[in-house]
Simulated assay, not measured.
Amino acid sequence: MKWLAVAIALIFAQSIDRFVEAAEVDVQLVLAIDVSSSVSWDEYGLQMQGVAAAFRDELVIDAIQSGPMGRISVAVTQWAGLGQQKTVMSWRVISGPEEAAALADDLGLISRAFPYGGTAIAEALDHAYALFSRDGNISQRQVIDISGDGKVSIGPSPDATRNRIVNKGVIINGLPILDSAKDLEIYYQDHVIGGIGAFIEIAATFEDFSRAIAEKLAREIRSTWQGV
């Protein structure tokens, strides 16, 4: 029976580790990045480099450290068509420039999850929402930050999915990239974003993505305690 006692001790120790690692954070944030066929490889690079640069930006670092807890929890997904959603970075707690820089460095090493595919926004939102149940941290605010350069091309309109997720208390913010769809801002406003204080930050082009994502992250992180 000695082996049983050892096994129980290991399970107990692992449970304690998970408890110790859990933290109360200001916001749990899922970044959902579009890698559908409309996104070229250069544009994919601009998105990932933009997200990485945002976590090195003093605007974002200051927003994180200014919160009541002074830390946030972040996960990153990539999405395209039906069945094409992948978590490319599991939950990480960020509380200062060192952790943010480490996250940025890791983002720069992430390969594109799907080389092509349609634009299935509803499935992307469902996948992003499911990630909250896998985060050992807790917060008063859960946010999905979805970016993309097009409207739904496959699967249902995101309205019903958006409404179901928002009714669970989650906020969905959008970053439409207007390269090929100049009315995408209106589409995101009407069909994608939702929840208390939900907002859109526009990127006029993929080259503008870096600026847009930094300003968007700072705003949605600060919204946690400023009630924006």
Rank of each mutant, 00 (worst) to 15 (best):
A5M: 05
A7L: 12
L10C: 14
I16S: 11
D17R: 13
R18G: 14
V25K: 13
D26I: 01
V27Y: 01
Q28C: 04
L29Q: 01
L29H: 03
S36L: 08
V39A: 08
Y44K: 09
A52C: 09
A54R: 01
R56Y: 03
L59D: 04
P68Y: 10
M69P: 03
I72Q: 10
A75V: 01
K86P: 02
K86N: 05
M89C: 03
R92M: 07
R92S: 08
V93Y: 02
G96T: 09
G96N: 13
E99S: 06
A104H: 11
D105F: 06
D105E: 15
S111A: 15
R112L: 06
A113C: 08
T119I: 13
T119V: 12
D126W: 03
D126F: 05
Y129W: 09
L131R: 12
L131F: 00
F132Q: 01
S133Q: 02
R134M: 14
G136R: 14
I138A: 13
Q142H: 13
G148I: 15
D149Y: 02
V152F: 02
V152T: 15
G155S: 09
S157Y: 03
P158K: 13
A160H: 14
T161M: 05
V166H: 00
L175V: 14
P176D: 14
L178D: 10
S180F: 15
A181V: 15
Q189D: 04
V192N: 02
V192R: 02
I196E: 15
A198Q: 04
A198V: 09
F206Y: 14
Q226N: 04
